[in-house]
Nucleic acid binder design. Sequence first.
DNA 1: TGACGTTCTGACTACGTAGACACATTCTGA
DNA 2: TCAGAATGTGTCTACGTAGTCAGAACGTCA
Lengths: 347, 347
Amino acid sequence: MAKPERGDSSARRRPGSTDVARLAGVSQKTVSRVLNDEPYVKEEVRLRVQAAMRELGYRRNDAARALNSGRTKRIGVVCLGTALFGPSTQLVAVERALRTTGYSVTIVNTLEGDTIADAVEHLLEQGVDGIILSEPIDEGDGVPIETDLPVLSFGRLPGLSAKPSLVTGGDNLGAGRTATEHLLGLGHRTVWHVAGPQRWWAAQDRLAGWRQALAAAGAPEPPVLEGDWLPASGYAAGRELAANPDVTAIFVANDDMAIGVLRALAEAGRSVPGDVSVVGFDDIPSAAFLTPPLTTVPQDFDIHVDRGIANLVTEIESPTGDRSPLPEPPPLRLVVRHSTAAPRPAG
Amino acid sequence: MAKPERGDSSARRRPGSTDVARLAGVSQKTVSRVLNDEPYVKEEVRLRVQAAMRELGYRRNDAARALNSGRTKRIGVVCLGTALFGPSTQLVAVERALRTTGYSVTIVNTLEGDTIADAVEHLLEQGVDGIILSEPIDEGDGVPIETDLPVLSFGRLPGLSAKPSLVTGGDNLGAGRTATEHLLGLGHRTVWHVAGPQRWWAAQDRLAGWRQALAAAGAPEPPVLEGDWLPASGYAAGRELAANPDVTAIFVANDDMAIGVLRALAEAGRSVPGDVSVVGFDDIPSAAFLTPPLTTVPQDFDIHVDRGIANLVTEIESPTGDRSPLPEPPPLRLVVRHSTAAPRPAG
DNA sequence: TGACGTTCTGACTACGTAGACACATTCTGA
DNA sequence: TCAGAATGTGTCTACGTAGTCAGAACGTCA
């Protein structure tokens, strides 16, 4: 009488372990034992219970389990720009890696107006067991995350104030340096840079790597052009660069923008790599099939994601246990295709 | 004594509404009222409770709420190929659309070896309130989903046996026809097709549209080449086509493969659109910046997603309420760029 | 045979929230 | 002034699961 029947005769409520127990002629607790593969259940009983489960179409109620145990077996992922190649590839890798661990994935995108803290708050309410920040961006002040939950960040995140925090991700700085050094090594006097949006740490780091390489080589540092990761912004930057005859080498912060740059150069009649060399970043699947095939720096998501996830899960399940050291970045590679060459001899 | 303290003094358990109530000097129920913005709470009390919440860092426990109410306010999304442009764009749209409705999103990717039914089962255990199938593929037999939950499918899904099911998505068939008609209209004798993997309904439909258009025009139907959505497979198909002098027009089932086709044609010395015209599908951001800029068919995800989600939420919250009719597909567009032209006059 | 250990099972209960309901207080109108 | 409505608050309880513990059924060894 305290509460009306949940659903009437037509749409009766989902069966619970109690219903299974009744049908199998055992106690609810025994059903729970079968459900969790606990020992000390007679084989005959186990089979009877499983049959009852099938008959009723029983499914465990995770909400109840979570309430009781305090753990949801769910990880929250805070995403940004999931439509882009890097973030979406990473998200897939995360889902795949978590799959084998028995955790499921709840995602929140930070869209316009949201801060990372908002997104995290949303996840905390849902009772996730851990949090992943995928490609966090620079929000000015730090990221005040008030939780004792383990937090894994893909990508540098200064100011992350959560206690048990793990950070991993590719070496954007080293990669930016490598790309730039490649161009300098071909004999270019200097290298121009089309940067990603500077709110992204990854974009900041690639730029910093470019700057370091120029400084180390004593090359002059041309002004930076900033895009938004998309081809159109690369095209806009490319038009500026194409108009400048001094430009012979460009490091573009991702392949999509590089496509725009290539287009702008082609329209301006400047040949690649004859007049201008271009290096991209990401090695998107189409990079090898562009005109010309693009020299670029591949990102190795799987390695970082797998190890990051492994550490996160360890941290969740045994907060005391010390975890394997974070992965040292894999050796940087540069895939040299046909968009880079030595500059034309002066004259 | 029945259960040990959850966490010792060092890491004490999360505060519950009871703790807030004690601090604010009210009953737990009143805290619940404040939490849910229910009426009949004195302003002064409301403020006191909110202050107590802040002081304790209280966060509602969604597991308990779900257990009590039978609803989780969570939607499960079954994804496939999330790294591809279409699916990932769609996922972002889904998350954005659900955001405003107060539902959160749990994703499951169907990877190798998983069936859609497996993925759905996983979601049902978690107690989602509704299910979205994003770009489902053809698994041979139907999709036996045993649930009364509303199911929304983006993309045709014959054999979907769930009761309250909604289907929406772009008109792949019409789009395939439009693309083909465009090429025929330019004067090409017939149009070749590089298809997507035929396990995908979207790929099947685009192919069927191509076939229809050819039949309607009385054009001969050349053999179909099948790719896997990725540029490399388009390149492989493109090499075959480039070697065949009869080929003057190609409809490629997505832009990424079209990039591979363009590359193969360029390497073979066949100019686009001089010798061969190419039409893609998707209008990925870089399509306008390829060499040459690609004529393609844009997909209108936002419209379908928004309406589909709206219907899904309606179905969840008032199963009786009849929903607005499903969206009629928006008018098909074809973005004509520079990869298509009339064939060279014979001879 | 009886003490003891191992295997198996059930009764009871907490988890945190919100629904049903009772009741107290204030306001409204005749 | 008092009935009756509107407003505000508390008590009790269910939701489905799994932890704790009591104890039954069975074996084993002295």
